[in-house]
């Protein structure tokens, strides 16, 4: 299955990855080849098969509602690109 230039651009926007114009062509080809590879899936008869999300079919263990974490803001913000007054800074968000 082929993927169009527009689809590549749409998916890149969803994934928040900027593409330069000269990258789109190569991606069209590579992603198209990958989609061809995965198209083998369509040959499988899965009409009565339940999807498998986890190999062990286990169920979720639930945690007691107890505080186990303590403030480590300084440690976390030391490795942050931009902070002020304990806040992470990003370019102005317009709502």
């Amino acid at each position: 299955m082929a993927i169009s230039r527009e689809e590549i651009e749409k998916v890149a926007l969803l994934a928040r990855i900027r593409l330069e114009d000269n990258q789109v062509g190569a991606l069209e080809k590579d992603v198209g080849n990958i989609l061809n590879l995965v198209d083998q899936l369509q040959s499988a008869d899965t009409s009565s098969v339940e999807p498998l999300a986890h190999p062990l079919d286990a169920t979720q263990r639930l945690r007691a509602d107890e505080v186990t974490e303590h403030d480590q803001r300084d440690a976390f913000q030391r490795i942050a690109p931009a902070t002020e007054d304990g806040l992470y800074l990003v370019p102005r968000v317009i709502e």
């Binding site: 806040l87 800074l89 102005r92």
Partner: peptide, 15 residues
Amino acid sequence: KSLHEDYHGMTGIDL
């Protein structure tokens, strides 16, 4: 929460 007070034209994020 996003805090839109002015941090040099930036938005502050409190998680």
